[in-house]
Every structure is written in structure tokens, then in C-alpha cells.
């Protein structure tokens, strides 16, 4: 069925990070720990789902010439909502994600999906696309964060998983570690895809 296809394509086939290579800035920045990756991913999924819904609903009354500013207004509104709600109810996560929440606005996955998908498809498909892409994004963040947190801090979701004698590789948690991890994972996914 088409709905399920749109829903699952973001996981591997059109994965926003490893295949479409969109939204790398937050990817590199927040994947220092699994909880940050998960929080960022779910926040972005929510924004993506809502903005896709609205963009799809207003596609017939949006003048093509000013569609980008309108999409940005829609996206920025939802990001601000997420920011305020998170600050009120999930203060700890809000603190650790900090600056990156407002930066969801410029995450190109969200504008990319609005422009490439939601503005051309009906509401139901756009929601499916939003959820699928968002979860694909979340999944990728969690995978990258898993590698970095285990190597760089010796923990996973805050729990110690390596023996105490393991001296964490600090570089994995710093910016270069993000690039290295991303590169290896991307190579791995390409390898798997080519074998198919």
C-alpha cells in the first residue's frame, strides 16, 4: 500500500541522513549522547509531521512565488511551539539540547520535505512522509550517537557499558568524531545497498 511505502521509505531506502544527506548540522552537533539524539530526532519528527500537514493543506492557496517564506513561517511556528512546550515539561532535555531546538527551523530535511513532497501530495501521504522521514532521522541519530557515546564516554543512554579499564576516546565525542562516525556508517550503508 502507498501509505506504508511512504511511511517506511525514510528508514533505509531514502534515509534522510545516510542516503539523502540532509540535515547534517544538527546530526553532527547533537549526537554526543543517545538521549540527545533521541530527543532531537523526536522533536524534529513532530515538527516535520506538523509542517508537512499544514503545507499540504495550504498548497492550493500558497502563491508559488512566496512559498518558501510561507513554509519557513509554518516550520518556525512549530519549532517555537516545541521549544516552549519542552521548556515547560521536559526541562532537562531542553537544557541539554539548548540551542539546537531553535535550529530545527533551518534543518533542511524539514524544508526539503515541505518543498519536495508535502506541496505536491495530499495530507495523508504528507503525514506518512513526515513520520517516516522523521523516524528515519531519529533512527540515524540514535545509531550515530550510540557509536559516539560508547566510544567517547563508555556509556549508552547514560548506563556504563564498557569495562572500567576502558579509557574513553574523547575524540569520538568531539566534532571530528562525528564526521568520522558518519563517514564510516555512510560507507557501510552504501556497501549494503550495492550488494542488493
Amino acid at each position: 500500500m502507498k501509505f506504508t511505502k511512504e511511511l517506511t521509505k525514510g528508514f533505509v531506502k531514502d534515509n534522510p541522513i545516510f542516503v539523502l544527506v540532509l540535515g547534517l548540522c544538527p546530526t553532527l552537533a547533537v549526537t554526543t549522547s543517545v538521549i540527545n539524539g533521541l530527543g532531537m530526532g523526536l522533536a524534529a519528527t513532530f515538527v516535520l509531521m506538523c509542517s508537512n500537514t499544514i503545507v499540504s493543506m495550504i498548497k492550493n492557496i500558497t502563491p508559488p512565488k512566496i512559498r518558501i517564506p510561507i513554509y519557513i513561517v509554518v516550520i518556525a511556528s512549530f519549532v517555537t511551539i516545541v521549544d516552549m512546550v519542552m521548556a515547560a515539561y521536559l526541562p532537562a532535555l531542553h537544557k541539554s539540547l539548548g540551542l539546537f531546538i531553535p535550529l530545527i527551523v533551518v534543518n533542511c530535511i524539514i524544508l526539503g520535505r515541505a518543498e519536495a513532497f508535502a506541496s505536491k501530495n495530499n495530507v495523508l501521504m504528507s503525514i506518512a512522509d513526515g513520520i517516516g522521514m522523521g523516524l528515519g532521522f531519529t533512527l540515524s541519530l540514535v545509531v550515530i550517537a550510540t557509536v559516539r557515546e560508547i566510544l567517547g564516554a563508555g556509556t549508552w543512554l547514560g548506563m556504563r557499558v564498557t569495562p572500567l579499564s576502558y579509557d574513553p576516546m574523547l575524540i569520538a565525542i568531539l566534532a571530528p568524531g562525528a564526521f568520522i562516525t558518519l563517514g564510516f556508517l555512510m560507507a557501510l550503508i552504501n556497501m549494503i545497498k550495492e550488494k542488493k
Binding site: P63, K65, I66, P69, I70, V73, V74, A76, S77, T80, I81, M84, V85, A87, A88, Y89
Partner: peptide, 28 residues
Amino acid sequence: KLGFILLIFCAIASGVLAYINTLTAPII
């Protein structure tokens, strides 16, 4: 006309945000 349409979109968005802010600001 384009500017006016954009203005309407922004006005709706700010209305919604203002409402949510009144809900969350006291909690924060």
C-alpha cells in the same frame, strides 16, 4: 497582494504562538 498573503500567514502564526506562550510561560 503577495505581501498581504504573507502577512495573513504570519498573523495567524503569531496568534497561535501567543496563545501557547500564555499556557507555557507561567509553568516555565
